[in-house]
Write a protein that binds this DNA or RNA. Sequence first.
DNA 1: CCCTGATTCGC
DNA 2: GCGAATCAGG
Length: 173
Amino acid sequence: MDWTAEAIDRLRAFWAEGHSTAEIGRRMGISKNAVVGKAHRLNLPARPSPIRREAEGEAASRPAPQPRRQPGAMPAAAPSLAATAPLRDAAPLRRLEASAPVAAASVVAPAPQAMVVRPFPRASTRSCCWPLGEPGTPDFRFCTGNATPGKPYCAEHASVAYVRVRERREDAA
DNA sequence: CCCTGATTCGC
DNA sequence: GCGAATCAGG
């Protein structure tokens, strides 16, 4: 993967939109590993992980990482059972109470330095969050309409977002 | 098994 | 720096 400025920008955009790493990978034609790897390297804000890594105390409970494939190398010596667990600096790891369906963060401005990531790009909870334009492009933005009560979209976009499943003919074979 | 994201580490 | 392999939870 050639991580051009544009590619990174797109990654940031997709990431900010809350797409899954696999989805981003599909969209960009790369593996999810590449996505998550790069995101991690870019220090992009980790989105709620389904996994809860050990919290300080439990660090030792993990049986030490398995040795990974080593082409030419020999199996070195016996893994001196844990005991060595480095226990790196206590990771912040505050358990986020998950909740709001990860709304898109500011995707817009390719701002070089001051890229403030707002948790909520919408003016208020009452404005439509329908995305407009291609993520990562300068013109990407959100619909500015008023969201209908109880929905994240304006009436217009809500009608697009929520499709009646029952559209099917009843003659289904 | 499918999915998810995180981390490790040979390259 | 990159990303496959691996891990780990739902």
